[in-house]
Structure formats: structure tokens, C-alpha cells
């Protein structure tokens, strides 16, 4: 593997709450390679969004705090980077495709206004009023940017981009809004895209269109992408490699097809069994609920819900081991078997 563009090393994040310290992210490791699309799959409350916020440096501190680890983007550690530097990276180095397209656009400005602001202010932590209007009133510069925006909109396959630019967000359908947000995230020509469940709010037929589009864009512009979702099927369509996350820990990592055809971790196989399949096989959920983060199980965090758990799982934390080539799993079952 080439050196990764994003590398999360031993990251631990916790929150101070009334009950005590909630250890929400528990020492995770995650790599996104150059030009690679990686899936991060997990259910509600498993820490996906916290991971994402930590990467972008928008975790609310306090109550949150990073207790351990590094997030390397290239050779820079995002956790220790000064805000000024971080602002330069946001949008240009790393950019985000948010989850809910219609809520993510400001309803009182036209698409054009929002695009222009972003395109012109990107990379600066603070723009003075004077500079802002100077830039905005510079017709020549503005026209250039608009031209760039229009090519961007064509890239995300929006019909009639000139007209769409004059629209207000309420005039857009969900799919259109998501395309525009993708275009906005691409305007600073980033190297890494963070996609936060970009298709969850959309209908399946539109979801299919957006996934195809994202795949094409990633290929065309040599982007790396971290695709965060709870939908296994979508992950299979878009990513090559996938991390399965449970209760703030990475439990399994490997090639998408391999994991979905032969899941090793009991949680992964539980998830796959829970999906209603069109072959109309029986499906079954996983008992119990996600553990309490203030007093998580001492050993494997999945232990209380695991059908194949035994005493040793209770106290010993499993480590990630490579079971097959590039297929890692954190489970005692496979440590003993070897």
C-alpha cells in the first residue's frame, strides 16, 4: 500500500457528561490511501460522526476532548495544527459532503451567492468586511469564479447550471441539492472527501444516481474518499475497503466483498444477518443495545451482545489481527484459532 493520505492513529475521544467520562472513541486506527475510497460502517451512536468531527477539528471542546492519538493528513497532525492552518486545509485539502442536503444550504441565499462566498473565502480563517466586498465587487474575478462554478455544476451533472445558480434552496429537489453540495465540496479541489451518509436522506433511485456520480468523480479527479454510512449495501457499491465500527472501536477491516461474503467478527455477521434480503432469506437482529460509554465493558465492547462470547471476552480487550491478507479482525475467536 502506498503511504496513506489520512491516517488516524490510536485516536481516543471522550465526553464529560453528568454520569462521568464517556469514552466514545476508543483507540481506533484508520487509514485512507491515495485515490482510495474507504467505507466506515457502523450503526447510530457508534462514533462515526464524532470521528468525522475530530478529523475536521469541529468537535465541541469541552465537553469533548481528545485523550490520545494522532490524525495525520499527509505529514501534518490535524490535532495539533493551529486553527489558521486548519482553515486552510478545510475545503482545500479535506472537504465534507454533509448528510442532509436540504438543511445544509442556507435557505435565504441563492445557490450562486453561497457558492461565491465559499469559493472566494476559502482557506481564510477570517475575512474582513472590506476585503470581502472588494473581492465580491470585482466583476472580472467574480465572473471567472462563476465560470469555474458552472463547470463544476456540469461535472456533477446538473442540467442548465446557469439557471440553477439563481435558485434558492427550496426550489431544489433532494438529489439536486446533494449534487450542488458535492460541487461545493469540490470547488477547492480537495484531495480527500469526507462523505457523511450523503445518500441517507434520498430516495433509492436517486441514491443510485448519486453513488454512481460520486464514484465517477473520485475516479476522474483522483480523489480519496472516506465514506461514512450505516448502509452496508451502499458501502459495497462505492468502497473497496471497509472498516466496521462498533461502540467506538474498529472491529473488522478488509476488502468489501470479502467481508460481506465471509464476515469474521460476530458483529459484522450479525449486521449482515439483520439485513432483509431480496432472496427472502430469514433475517435476524442483534440482541441488546449499544453499551453505556461511561462504563463500557472492560474487554470486548461487543461482548454483552455477542452470541459466541465466553469468559475470556469479558476481561481481555481483543487486538486487531490479520487473519487473511489485508483482512483484520479484533476478536478473541480468531486469536485462539491461529
Amino acid at each position: 500500500m502506498t503511504s496513506p493520505i489520512l491516517s488516524i492513529k490510536n485516536l481516543a475521544v471522550s465526553f464529560n457528561t453528568f454520569e462521568g467520562e464517556a469514552k466514545v472513541i476508543d483507540h481506533i486506527n484508520l487509514d485512507v490511501g491515495e485515490k482510495e475510497t474507504v467505507g466506515l460502517v457502523g450503526e447510530t451512536g457508534c462514533g462515526k460522526s464524532v470521528t468525522l468531527k475530530t478529523i475536521l477539528g469541529i468537535l465541541p471542546i469541552p465537553p469533548g476532548k481528545v485523550t490520545n492519538g494522532q490524525i495525520l493528513f499527509g505529514d501534518k497532525n490535524l490535532l495539533t495544527l493551529p486553527t489558521k492552518e486548519l482553515c486552510k486545509l478545510r475545503g482545500r485539502g479535506i472537504s465534507l459532503i454533509p448528510q442532509d442536503p436540504l438543511v445544509s444550504l442556507n435557505p435565504v441565499f441563492t445557490i450562486k451567492a453561497q457558492f461565491l462566498d465559499l469559493a472566494m473565502r476559502q482557506g481564510e480563517e477570517h475575512v474582513s468586511r472590506i476585503n470581502y466586498y472588494r473581492k465580491k465587487l470585482n466583476k472580472k474575478q467574480t465572473q471567472q469564479v462563476v465560470k469555474k462554478i458552472i463547470t463544476m455544476l456540469q461535472k456533477v451533472q446538473i442540467p442548465d447550471p446557469e439557471r440553477v445558480l439563481e435558485y434558492y434552496p427550496y426550489q431544489l429537489s433532494g438529489g439536486m441539492a446533494q449534487r450542488i453540495l458535492i460541487a461545493i465540496s469540490l470547488i477547492g479541489s480537495p484531495r480527500l472527501l469526507l462523505a457523511d451518509e450523503p445518500t441517507t436522506a434520498l430516495d433509492v433511485t436517486v441514491q443510485k444516481q448519486i453513488i454512481t456520480l460520486l464514484k465517477k468523480i473520485a475516479e476522474d479527479s483522483n480523489l480519496s474518499m472516506l465514506y461514512i454510512t450505516h448502509n452496508l449495501g451502499v458501502t459495497r457499491k462505492i468502497a473497496k475497503r471497509v472498516y466496521i465500527m462498533y461502540a467506538g472501536q474498529i472491529v473488522e477491516m478488509g476488502n468489501v466483498r470479502e467481508i460481506f461474503n465471509e464476515p469474521l467478527h460476530p458483529y459484522t455477521s450479525g449486521l449482515i444477518n439483520a439485513l432483509p434480503k431480496i432472496t427472502r432469506e430469514k433475517f435476524n437482529g442483534i440482541d441488546g443495545t449499544i453499551p453505556d460509554y461511561v462504563h463500557p465493558p472492560k474487554g470486548c465492547r461487543f461482548y454483552p451482545r455477542c452470541p459466541s462470547a465466553d469468559e475470556s471476552c469479558k476481561n481481555q480487550r481483543p487486538v486487531m489481527i490479520e487473519v487473511k491478507e489485508n483482512h483484520f479482525v479484533a476478536c478473541r475467536l480468531f486469536q485462539e484459532g491461529r
Binding site: 439536486m176 433509492v204 443510485k208 444516481q209 449495501g233 459495497r236 460481506f260 449482515i272 434480503k277 431480496i278
Partner: peptide, 28 residues
């Protein structure tokens, strides 16, 4: 057909059942 083909499935077996259809244009 379009609805069925757009179901994000996970196994090969399911993929074989899916009808192959051209993608839909636009949105509802």
C-alpha cells in the same frame, strides 16, 4: 423494476436476481 434494481444489496446471490435496467432520469 427501477426500484428493485436500486436496492443496495450485499451478496452476489442477490445481485443476480436484480433486473438489469437503465438508470432513471431525474427525480420524482
Amino acid at each position: 423494476r427501477a426500484l428493485i434494481s436500486a436496492i443496495p444489496v450485499i451478496s452476489e446471490k442477490e445481485r443476480n436476481i436484480l433486473p438489469k435496467v437503465p438508470p432513471l432520469r431525474g427525480e420524482i
